[in-house]
């Protein structure tokens, strides 16, 4: 079971909907569309040989500087096959105008809080989630703090200019 084998199989199965194959540090990485993500998780989980049935992490990424507005937000699923010791990373890119993605709680119970955390940090809406509310931050927060436009330190301070610290 190699990266190439799984990649070829996924192309056979999902055709045009899987792209951007890569293997940084040996981990198979690919992108798909939000329509295909849940079928893909199901397919990998139920595959008799792969048995990629453990959701290691689920998190969001914000790329405000990406020239393509369709790729401003990203949801990353990292899965693990405990039987074959095989890891795979699946990305789904979203635009800010339409931050909806189907929930993975139908496949993995563990996705529940990870999705709530991703919503809490980035405002990505997981359709069909049983209880999509903030989890770590307070309920009445009116912004999504992990987005890049929110600076960590007080921008009005003059004694801490980024240029001086090479940031």
């Amino acid at each position: 079971m190699t990266n190439e084998e799984v990649a070829k199989d996924l192309i056979r199965q999902f055709g045009e909907d899987v792209y951007d194959f890569d293997d940084p540090h040996g981990m198979l990485t690919l992108s798909t569309t939000r329509e295909q993500i849940i079928p893909m998780l199901q397919y990998l989980k139920n595959h008799t040989i792969y048995q990629i049935s453990f959701l290691t992490t689920l998190c969001g990424i914000h790329y405000p500087d990406d020239p393509n507005p369709e790729r401003e937000f990203c949801v990353v699923y990292q899965l693990h096959s405990l039987v074959n010791n095989f890891r795979i990373r699946i990305k789904v890119f979203l635009s800010e105008a339409d931050l909806h993605i189907p929930t993975a709680t139908t496949v993995y119970m563990s996705a529940n809080w990870m999705e709530r955390e991703t919503y809490d940090f980035f405002g990505i809406i997981f359709d069909g989630h049983p209880k999509l509310i903030r989890i770590l931050n307070m309920e009445d927060m009116d912004y999504f703090p992990m987005r890049k436009q929110y600076p960590l330190e007080d921008p009005t301070r003059e004694d801490k200019i980024d240029a001086l610290f090479g940031r």
Binding site: T56, C59, W113, M114
Partner: peptide, 16 residues
């Protein structure tokens, strides 16, 4: 600095 750093914290996940 990291562009993004995500920690997989085991207790966060299994406490569900």
């Amino acid at each position: 600095a990291p562009y993004r750093l995500h920690f997989r914290r085991p207790s966060f996940i299994y406490y569900q």
